[in-house]
Simulated scan of single mutants.
Amino acid sequence: MTADITGRAVAFLVAPEGIEQVELTEPWTAVEQAGGDPVLVSTQSGRVQGFHHLDKADTFPVDAVVGETGADSYDALVLPGGVANPDYLRTVGDAVRFTHAFFEQGKPVAAICHAPWLLVEADVVRGRTVTSFPSVRTDLVNAGAEWVDREVVTDRGLVTSRTPKDLAAFNAKLVEEIAEGEHRAQARSAERVSAGPAGGHSRK
């Protein structure tokens, strides 16, 4: 039975393009079906471009711009993958600060495939057990994480998975973590990060 997250606002942070579409649409649907309110956040207004591997797919309307909204407006964060998507986001200061703020506030975060690159940039994986697309493993280990090869891993409110093949497990676990709410251990872990960015801006 799916956990009930009625009324919970869930931010989906993506770049303007390079998103692996299924890693956006399937978790989005899972949040909606559980009663949640998914919100598409990007670095600029307009529409974002989804991809099926290297081929352009659909576009999706942006609900909020990352520099104009903050983690305090949401109950959880989902980070879809794709190679170009997180690779771009980790160069955007507002996106890094937005992500780090969820950890400071103890809120659930779910990242799949290449998306943990953004977690590395936000310096929030130190001392955590995670998984990812195999090519991201070295970056995570160098950032202080313990990497394991499992379809889904949960550590103090952080959910990670490897590839689209793991989406069923990923979706179930992210909804479960959102239903559980804030994790004090998540916030304590963020407090121990010595060089982490500051929290996000308030949403208007």
Rank of each mutant, 00 (worst) to 15 (best):
F60H: 12
K173T: 15
D55H: 02
D166W: 03
F103M: 10
P116M: 05
E20H: 09
R192C: 05
V22T: 15
E121C: 04
T160M: 03
L174F: 14
T129D: 06
A76Y: 00
P27G: 04
H52F: 12
E17Q: 14
P27S: 04
W147N: 12
V39A: 06
D4S: 04
E20D: 10
N85K: 05
D4A: 04
R184K: 15
F60T: 00
H52Y: 11
V62L: 02
P80A: 10
D4L: 01
R162D: 09
H183N: 12
L24H: 01
G7M: 01
A30W: 00
M1I: 07
V124D: 02
V41Q: 06
T25I: 06
G70P: 06
Q44T: 14
S132R: 02
Q44D: 11
H114D: 08
E177F: 02
D149Q: 09
A3H: 12
E20N: 08
T2F: 04
R128K: 12
V124H: 03
A187V: 04
A190T: 10
D75W: 07
V78P: 09
C113Y: 00
S189N: 14
V130D: 00
P80Y: 03
W147E: 07
A30Y: 01
E180Y: 10
N171A: 08
G106A: 08
D149W: 07
